[in-house]
Design a binder for these strands. Structure first.
Lengths: 213, 213
DNA sequence: CCATTACGATACGGACCGGTACCGTAATGT
DNA sequence: ACATTACGGTACCGGTCCGTATCGTAATGG
């Protein structure tokens, strides 16, 4: 909506064109408020307009309401996807977890992460948008990496790929999103991936059922 | 605050005593609103009073504001801790994950889980209370189980216990809290624990001595 | 019986909000 | 030049909210 719709519908562009700077100012204003720790519930159109130095009409001219605006904020704040090294499944997984870790460390991404998740229940539209734009592609990417690993023999093939993905992503996500006090030290991604691959049994411990089959 | 404070300070109990039923009605009212999907941001004292069939004064008489009230709601909604089987570390871990899974399935617990997490950023007091009352004890319990497992040789001892705990808890928590669409099938707890213990490498794969040293 | 406190209800002032409607001005195309 | 549209600013209406106060009534203890 909004950003892409205007030129598409019809554009003889008669009168004064919409200032792209105003567009940015509004979205930046929302970001700034969120980064300053303003609870998302207190984000009113009036306050956003005030912060952005913009008339309320300028907002209503572009978005139907707070939700639509917020969807665009999420879209604008998403950093571009990084490339995977592709050297091995293990390295790809580490790279994927690393972007999650970074996201938890960067204020801008972190605040979006939290806001979206806070809205999740009350406003499915926002969650849906975020899911479609951010979560789903990355999840699909992760699952593809895992599938390739299974084919290459780097990963056991007798476990559901969806579950495997959660096993890798879950620990990082819990720290980055759900525990504000948790730390995200350097090398955490590697430790998670390698520990999971090695397994949690002691070194010499037999695999319970049949040690050497 | 509130529930425990009144009789402690001084209690000649002169006039009409506070109705315990009113107390319950208020907390139940908040729970009902949340369960009905009312966004936590829209919970106003007025609306709570209306729902509970209670005067606003009755609320202000007991709590200083919405936060204090909400802390008590969280406290009241917490189901009692279940016992651990204690037969083995593996079984204890499964039991711990199982309570998490149940929490994601029961509307009442689930809604509290989400609400608290939504509030987390904007209202550290609520998060702190929930953390202290619910998260921390369970986390401590899990870590103790893991430590015991390390001593018994059921779990490798060369990995940080905190990280190990996240490895077990993370996947379940991600599904129960962060992905409203995810399913929490029966046996999920067992699958997580067993898969993690076995490790994610294919059956015959060598342990690679030191993966990245 | 009386002081005291709690109760539901209602009212109040001050604040903010949403959404719309205007200003006077600015920036376009024709 | 002219019509057209966007701009920031301001005002407006109807609504909800907070927090306090004040009703008349109810439930205690002394």
């Amino acid at each position: 909506m909004s950003l892409a719709d205007k030129p598409k519908t019809d554009a003889p562009a008669r009168g004064r064109p919409r200032s792209e700077a105003v567009e940015r100012a509004i979205i930046e204003g929302v970001m700034k408020l969120l980064e300053d720790g303003v609870p998302l519930a207190e984000l009113s159109i009036e306050r956003i307009a005030r912060t952005a130095g913009v008339g309320k009409a300028a907002i209503y001219r572009r978005w139907r309401g707070k939700e639509e605006l917020f969807v665009d904020v999420v879209r604008a704040a998403e950093p571009p996807d990084e490339e995977l090294p592709g050297t091995s499944m293990r390295d790809d997984l580490v790279a994927l977890l690393e972007t999650l870790r970074q996201r938890g460390l960067v204020s801008r991404s972190s605040v979006i992460l939290h806001s979206v998740h806070a809205q999740m229940k009350s406003s499915p539209r926002i969650w849906e948008a975020y899911n479609k734009l951010v979560v789903a592609p990355r999840r699909r990417l992760g699952i593809e990496v895992l599938r390739r690993g299974q084919r290459n023999g780097e990963l056991r093939a007798d476990v559901d790929v969806e579950l495997l993905n959660d096993l890798f992503v879950g620990p990082m996500l819990v720290r980055a999103v759900m525990r504000p006090d948790a730390d995200l030290p350097d090398g955490l991604s590697e430790r998670i991936v390698d520990t999971l691959l090695e397994g949690l049994r002691p070194a010499g411990s037999p695999p319970v059922s049949s040690p050497a089959e």
